[in-house]
Design a protein around this nucleic acid. Structure first.
Lengths: 134, 134
DNA sequence: ACCTTCATTGACCTAAACGTAAAGCCCATG
DNA sequence: CATGGGCTTTACGTTTAGGTCAATGAAGGT
């Protein structure tokens, strides 16, 4: 008995990922996702769900929807020609460079935050331990 | 002879960080930076320069200007009261959580990109090595 | 038959982050 | 002196990412 569903309503996904249905429809408008339909209603497959997950991860990384679209298109491409392949590889390398830059930014920021926080902690201790020590 | 300048024009900083003067003024409008003035002209100190650097790093990390403002304000706070300190620490922890999430997102994405790329490379080799082998 | 709930489309609205003129100040230089 | 370069403000335009109605439809309960 697999618990895994194979169809989701828009509300399902909205709940699961804490976004509004409006946002999900908006992504569809922008061509980022294309669920099946039952009449008017959207029906999302597990693949669609993964796509949405990718979209949201892209957003957390600060990509625009257009960029995310390009990335997803790349993923899906199944590139045929050699030129295509080479372009895809080049694109991968660019993405990696950007992500490495972000990694670096994050690391630096984390260190600074650690510094601030431990500084705070020390001050707090100094305030509390020796209330009237001299 | 220290090469380090201690005053910069808006164009200096714009060049150095590859942003437009307009953008820098916009950050000032939003209260993110407050250079000195010589008459009308803005004069940026090394501290201002660091601030701008922080702003741009924040942007690369996908923060909004408002969020960046809050973060910078925290950095600058020199918090006095114990309550302030505790709130700052709490804020640090939230930031760290968000950054860790981003770290994770980036790592996953990097792995996926690596997979795509090496897949591409393999296909390319298959295309080139055995042009008519049987 | 009626009501409620959920989903859909369409229209308009908003905030963020600038871009893009337009017009003026200040100063050096031919 | 007037011209050019760099900086300034003011103001309006643009793009992105949705929010917020409003009207409509289809499904299910009583």
């Amino acid at each position: 008995m697999d618990k895994a569903q194979d169809a989701f309503s828009i509300a399902d996904l909205a709940r699961e990922f804490s976004v509004t249905p409006r946002a999900i429809r908006f992504y569809e408008d922008k061509g980022l996702i294309a669920p099946a339909r039952d009449g008017l209603r959207r029906i999302y497959s597990p693949r669609d769900r993964v796509r949405l997950k990718l979209i949201l991860r892209g957003k957390r990384l600060g990509f625009t929807l257009r960029e995310i679209q390009e990335i997803i298109d790349l993923y899906d491409a199944e590139p045929t020609g050699e030129a295509q392949l080479r372009r895809l590889i080049a694109s991968c390398q660019r993405s990696r460079a950007a992500l490495r830059q972000q990694l670096d930014d994050i690391q630096v920021t984390l260190e600074e935050i650690d510094a601030v926080e431990s500084q705070c902690s020390r001050i707090l201790e100094d305030l509390n331990l020796p209330p009237k020590a001299d």
